[in-house]
């Protein structure tokens, strides 16, 4: 599904949270909303899901204006930072929840739940209580639950920030794998620059409720369009990846490196903006 935001503005408690935010997400794209805390990223996500209503502007799904459509009919499933599984249901019932809401018969939705759990490597966990699972497992259940109802878009609100570093890498891979498999249009909110760089097809950089730049990861990294974006990349950064065919690659980050030898390499960006790729 293609999603387009057109001039979204929103005030909350007398503060401008979003100021004329416009961007479009292509069908099947993985787009990240990047920015510091308070930039309006999560608010933007809630406006798309219909959990918050904008003061000005419009949201379009596949060209259809959806501002009058309530959240439960927008088919935009959210994976939250704080997970939000239903404690009164077991793992399988959680995953099957969207299907139950759609009126799918029990046998059928339980079969789908079992299949979804398999895809997030939790086969056989269906009858467990939610509280028995570790944080990483719970977030995988939340991911399975979000995808079980075949939503038109997947919205991820800082989905990995509650997890430790090792789990985060694993979850990123899983999310990208499922996203590639299902081809679902996805929007992820994150404040983690390298996370956005390696996962996204494109990145929307938000600062103080405004869109500063919309670009592919490599472009954003090498040519920040405004001082705010440059500041975000101001600190030195190292990304490990591989060089092949004259370009450095890590996940979806691609940076031209015609001189570097193929093989394991690191992309290094210094605080003065200069960068290089070196084999490791």
């Amino acid at each position: 599904m293609e999603i387009r935001l057109d001039g979204i503005s929103l005030d909350l408690g007398g503060k401008h949270i979003l100021d004329n935010v416009s961007f479009a997400v292509r069908d099947g794209e993985f787009l990240s909303l990047l920015g510091q805390s308070g930039a309006g990223k999560s608010t933007t996500l809630k406006v798309i899901a219909g959990l918050l209503y904008q003061d000005a502007g419009a949201v379009f799904f596949d060209g259809q204006q959806v501002d009058e459509v309530p959240t439960h009919r927008r088919q935009t499933a959210i994976v939250f930072q704080d997970i939000r599984l239903f404690p009164n249901m077991d793992v399988a019932a959680n995953v099957a929840f969207p299907l139950k809401m759609q009126g799918v018969k029990k046998a059928e939705r339980m079969a789908v739940a079992e299949e979804m759990l398999e895809r997030v490597q939790l086969a056989g966990y269906g009858s467990r209580a939610v509280g028995e699972l570790s944080g990483g497992q719970q977030q995988r259940v939340a991911l399975a639950r979000a995808l079980a109802g075949r939503p038109r878009a997947l919205l991820l609100d800082e989905p990995f920030s509650g997890l430790d570093e090792a789990l985060r890498a694993e979850m990123r891979e899983l999310v990208l794998e499922l996203q590639a498999e299902t081809g679902i249009t996805s929007i992820m909110v994150t404040h983690d620059v390298s996370e956005a760089l390696v996962m996204s097809d494109r990145i929307v950089y938000l600062s103080d409720g405004r869109v500063e730049q919309v670009a592919e990861p490599g472009e954003l990294c090498l040519n920040p369009a405004s001082p705010a974006v440059a500041r975000a990349f101001g600190e030195a950064m190292v990304v490990e990846g591989e060089v092949s065919d004259g370009a450095f690659r890590c996940g979806k980050l691609r940076i031209p490196a015609p001189d570097a030898a193929s093989g394991r390499a690191a992309f290094v960006r210094l605080s003065d903006g200069s960068h290089f790729v070196r084999g490791i």
Binding site: A49, L51, P70, T71, H72, R73, R74, Q75, T76, A77, I78, F80, D82, R84, F86, N88, F97, P98, K100, M101, Q102, R145, A146, G149, P151, L155
Partner: peptide, 27 residues
């Protein structure tokens, strides 16, 4: 309102939300 928000985004109509999510929390 956390679980209610989650349920809405997963397609729960107001009455479904009440029965399956809100009332169990308040039980």
């Amino acid at each position: 309102g956390r679980l209610e928000e989650a349920a809405r985004s997963l397609g729960a109509r107001p009455l479904q939300n009440l029965v399956h999510v809100i009332l169990p929390q308040l039980a």
